[in-house]
Every structure is written in C-alpha cells, then in structure tokens.
C-alpha cells in the first residue's frame, strides 16, 4: 500500500495505469482459481488438518497465561500473566529438570552424532558389496523395535537377576541396581539409544559416500595417499554438507529428548536424573490436571526450541553457506 502512495505522488499517469492493471490482476486471479480449483481442493484436507491440530493448539497456549478451568473455558478463564512461568522457574525442581533435559540431550548429541558417521566410513571400506549389504541389514534391525520393547529389554537385561549382573558378579560381590540408581540413568539412556538408532542413522552417510566419485580415491592412491589420509581428505569432505544439515536438525531438536523412552525408564528411585521437561509437563499438566501450569512449562520448552533452531541455522548459514530454510 505505501508503495502505491509514493508512486502516485510522482506522476498521475502512473496511477491511471495502475487501476485497470490491478483489476485485471484480480480477474486473472479469479480466472486462475476457477481453472485450477482442483489444486486448491487437493490442498484443503492438509490445510484443514494442520489448522485444526497444529494451529488451534497454538492458540490454546494462551492458557499458559491464564488460570484455566475446563468449566469456564479458555475465554472466560482469568488472566494471571507470567505467574505460572515464575512459579516453575522458582520451584525447587526447576534447575534439576532443566539440567536433566539439557544433559541428556547433550550427551545424546555428542556421542550419538559422530557414531553413525564413523560407522558409515567403516562400512565404506568393506569392498564386497554382499557382505556390506548384510551388515547393513543387521545393524538396521533395532530401528524397527518399538520404544516400549526397548524399555522392556533394558529392564530385563539390567535387573538384579538379569544377564548383565550375572556377568558382573565375577567382579563384584553383589548385583548392581542399575534402574534405581540415578547415576546410571544417562548412560543407559544414551547407550540404548545408540544401540537402536546408530545403524539406521548411518544410511544417509553410506549413501552419500557411495555416490561420491571413485576416481578421487584412485587419483589419491596413485599419489601415494594412505588410507587414513584418503578417508580424511576425501570421504569426510564428501560427508560434510550432509553432516551440516543433520547437525542443524539435531541441535534444533536438542531439547526434544526422547521423553517417551525417558518416561518408560523412570522408576521412583532414578527420578532425580530421569525427570525431563516433557515428562514433567505430562505429570503436572495431564495427570495432576494442572492445565495452565503444564501448558506454561510446555511453552517454555517450545520457545527454547524455537530459539535454538533459528540460532543454529544462522550460525551454519554464516559458516558454510548451507541452510535448511
């Protein structure tokens, strides 16, 4: 609109020309929509679904600033400003839950991110494609096991009467209560996550490597480059763009710990390490029906996630010229 005003100040001829143009544009748009209405029909189920299940909850977030009661509804509930947020941040649990979330996901990122890359570099050295395919087939398998089963297996293997303790009794005189000791929780969580996901996560790197030019390796070999030199100067360079993109995604989702697994692995005893923001939201918000407080804690998490995603995207954009969005 301001553009129109400024241009109209320059010359009246321009204005006269613009009015019919605009109308023409409008009729053209209508004509276009009439002709291509089917495309808009195609879009409508997805738009409607996202509107209902994604955007309405975004509006529903206002209850984080209210004292929501189901009887009164969202509109009629009283505004309380930021009191739920300050309550959360001043509660004695806040620091512990916040740090649990950060630590758990930081460990998962630091250890979980490089392993699929290393695995792919190792697989890339397997010359016989039949063997390589079979190894891949096996290491993908855990990806298809549900989180509930993984949780169940962890409890079974680590129970005081389980196989791991049976091995450990050789060195120790009594069984270790892995699942009731907060100190072990993070290791158990991260290690089982790697067991389940690293193989499948390597797919993308393996594919990127197999698409790279084999002549690069030939040339380097003729120049006398050693295996490690070739891996570093060729394979790792090939993987760099993929790594950048996946790293953005991983850091952007760093606060989104696998709370579904964390919740399954929680015992009363390991809670000091296993309570993360989302399991806390579930317990306070849903189980204890403290709706507004739960929504506030959830919003707190969403905002941190948003800032992380934007920041990391900016950083990588500056460094590499690679960007997701």
């Amino acid at each position: 609109m301001p553009k129109d005003l400024s241009s109209s100040g320059n010359s009246s001829v321009n204005v006269l020309n613009q009015i019919p143009k605009k109308n023409k544009k409008k009729t053209e748009l209508l004509k276009y929509i009439r002709k291509n209405w089917i495309l808009y029909l195609f879009l409508s189920p997805a738009v409607l679904s996202v509107l209902i299940f994604n955007y309405i909850p975004m509006y529903g977030v206002v209850i984080a600033f209210k004292d929501f009661s189901p009887v009164r509804g969202i509109m009629a509930s009283e505004w309380v400003g930021f009191s739920h947020f300050t309550n959360f941040m001043q509660s004695p649990n806040f620091l512990r839950i916040f740090m649990n979330t950060v630590q758990l996901s930081a460990y998962e990122l630091l250890i979980g991110f490089p392993i699929p890359i290393i695995l792919a570099l190792m697989l890339n050295q397997v010359r016989r494609s039949g063997i390589k395919k079979n190894i891949q087939l096996i290491i993908y398998a855990p990806h298809f096991i549900s989180v509930v089963v993984i949780g169940g297996m962890i409890f079974m293997f680590l129970s005081p009467a389980g196989p791991l303790n049976a091995i450990l009794t050789v060195f120790l005189d009594r069984p270790v209560a892995f699942m009731s000791e907060p100190n072990y929780f993070r290791t158990i969580f991260v290690a089982s996550g790697i067991w389940q996901a690293a193989g499948f996560a390597s797919i993308i790197y393996v594919a990127a490597l197999s698409n790279s030019d084999p002549q690069l390796h030939d040339a380097a070999m003729i120049d006398g480059a050693s295996l490690l030199q070739r891996i570093w100067h060729i394979d790792v360079q090939v993987l760099k763009p993929v790594m950048a993109v996946l790293f953005i995604l991983a850091v952007g989702g760093i606060m989104a710990v696998g709370f579904e697994k964390a919740y399954l692995l929680q015992t009363d005893m390991n809670l000091p390490a296993s309570e993360v923001i989302e399991t806390y939201v579930y317990k306070r918000g849903l189980q204890a029906a403290d709706w507004s407080f739960g929504a506030a804690v959830g919003l707190f998490l969403s905002i941190i996630n948003l800032m992380l995603l934007i920041t990391v995207n900016q950083v990588v954009k500056k460094l590499k010229g690679e960007s997701l969005f």
């Binding site: 996202v50 309405i56 977030v61 918000g285």
Partner: peptide, 22 residues
Amino acid sequence: AFMIFFLFTMFFNGGLIPTYLL
C-alpha cells in the same frame, strides 16, 4: 503462503496440554 503456513509448524507447536484439551 501455503508453504509458510505448513513450515511454521516445524518451528513452533502448542505443546502437549493445549493439544490434549483440543
């Protein structure tokens, strides 16, 4: 406009409680 409408949901969501209430 449609792309922005869809992509925005990757950045922000209402969270567990508002979704449950819906």
